[in-house]
Design a protein around this nucleic acid. Structure first.
Lengths: 167, 167
DNA sequence: GTCTATACATAGATAGAC
DNA sequence: GTCTATCTATGTATAGAC
């Protein structure tokens, strides 16, 4: 999925990599939809664990930044978003993941923003979290394509803001 | 492509919508790669025109925000980014588009930032442009999925920053 | 420019033997 | 749990008639 996109994920190719016959794929997952959902669940679980650990650390903002600015993660996220475009089960699951994620973030960001003296009305924790993540993913997506033109400047810009919260 | 993802774009379906036979698609575009490239070129041209008009207006930042926060545009961009994952021709074309776009943005942002009294070393115009666009696309992608939870807060947050440049 | 005919490859999925 | 055999649908692409 990462290497060639979701459309290249077929029972035949999966079986080939596993050194087995394609029919086995249908033994474990009746349909390809089931397989994609299982994959999403597995990634989701691993992600939420990593995420919880990061938010519990003493540099949650930098941790979140690192996770979201990973080009491979961003590319895979893009594939799932594209998949969600036409497989509504996938879309529903992504929405669920998003909800859980944002709730976790909101609590931590609330504390971080408050102790830095920000007005939570003006800077809603969830909104700030989405902003940080969007910027990170923006950079990551460009990196995945091979574009790095303005990234040094962006990282410096973000770094100055992060330093206000996590010196 | 917008409705069912790039993988659903087949010569058969295209012909069906056009009320013609699938073979005609191959008459106009020898391969599907050629077709996708032609589509990207057409979208790219239209986009750059819209883009130039926006940047020449008296509210280029808000204009850029509006363009990038359109959910349909964001969804289509996502499809092309996913396509670029495994069709290198598409990736190369997207990089070209990106370069032209950023150059156009940089000039305008430079002026806007300067007249608002920002240090261009600290706030590189291109970097600021990528940040604005990334946030807009982040919101748009969530909207396309049906997530709107923290969007009001985000829009208000962004609006306060935009107002500093375009009262 | 549009059609019919056709080839060839690939994908999803099921049945049943071992 | 893994295999062989097999069906059926779908996709890309070419040749050649009109």
């Amino acid at each position: 999925m990462r290497e060639q996109g979701y459309a290249a994920v077929t029972s035949r190719r999966i079986a080939e990599r596993a050194g087995l016959k394609p029919q086995l794929v249908h033994y474990y997952f009746r349909t390809m939809d089931e397989l994609f959902l299982a994959l999403l669940h597995r990634l989701t679980d691993a992600y939420l664990v990593q995420f919880a650990r990061t938010l519990a650390s003493d540099t949650p903002l930098r941790g979140l930044w690192d996770i979201s600015s990973n080009p491979e993660t961003a590319a895979l996220t893009t594939e799932f978003l594209a998949l969600a475009n036409h497989r509504k089960d996938i879309g529903a699951e992504i929405i669920r993941l998003n909800r859980r994620m944002r709730s976790m973030q909101a609590e931590v960001f609330k504390q971080v923003l408050q102790s830095a003296g920000f007005d939570l009305e003006e800077y809603p924790p969830e909104a700030v979290a989405v902003v940080l993540e969007s910027i990170a993913r923006g950079i990551a997506l460009e990196s995945a394509l091979g574009i790095t033109r303005s990234h040094a400047g962006m990282r410096a810009l973000v770094e100055r803001y992060l330093a206000k919260f996590e010196p």
